[in-house]
């Protein structure tokens, strides 16, 4: 029998279907207990509308693999960060034409600094590799993505924002 952790690790994210939940970093723990399987997940954003689907997909996958007693638990802390996206996840994002996030911002003590103007220009184009691209909009089709454009190949693309 395939282990519950291996089963859970194959489930993909509904919004970024090229990534597994494990590669996205939202699958935090899979534990087989005497009573069944307990899976722990964390949302990317507070309002993530996919949590319901993710929970259902995990339960279906585990049931299909013979784990009838499974439940999914949510944790909020520590809050998800894009640093948890794995190397294979980043490679798959690029292959899908989505620029992966850079390192999440590290904050000094004190108030959150205000960013006026563009955060960074050094997001590489996932299509042609041009190093410097421009931001079109800070918010994209899902909470975790922004829209950018490449000045070299002129193609628009999405970038997973660092949080």
């Amino acid at each position: 029998m395939v282990s519950a952790a291996e089963v859970a690790a194959t489930v993909t994210d509904p919004e970024l279907p090229m990534l597994t939940l494990a590669e996205l970093g939202i699958l935090r723990d899979v534990r087989e207990t005497g009573d069944g399987v307990e899976v722990t997940i964390t949302p990317t954003y507070s309002g993530c509308p996919a949590m319901e689907t993710i929970r259902t997909d995990l339960l279906h996958a585990l049931h299909d693999a013979g784990y009838s007693q499974a439940h999914v638990r949510t944790i909020l802390a520590p809050a998800w960060t894009t640093d948890w996206i794995s190397d294979s996840g980043r490679a798959k994002l690029v292959a899908a034409g989505i620029a992966p996030p850079g390192p999440a911002p590290r904050r000094a003590a004190g108030p959150v600094p205000l960013v006026l103007g563009v955060r960074d220009d050094d997001v590489a184009c996932p299509r042609c590799g041009e190093q410097s691209t421009e931001r079109l909009a800070a918010f994209g089709a899902t909470a975790c993505r922004e829209l950018r454009r490449c000045p070299a190949c002129r193609e628009p693309f999405e970038h997973v924002k660092e949080i």
Partner: peptide, 15 residues
């Protein structure tokens, strides 16, 4: 936990 998570989101709203 709600506060720490919200900070990441509302930073973008303020910007």
């Amino acid at each position: 936990a709600i506060g720490a998570k919200g900070v990441k989101e509302v930073s973008y709203h303020r910007d």
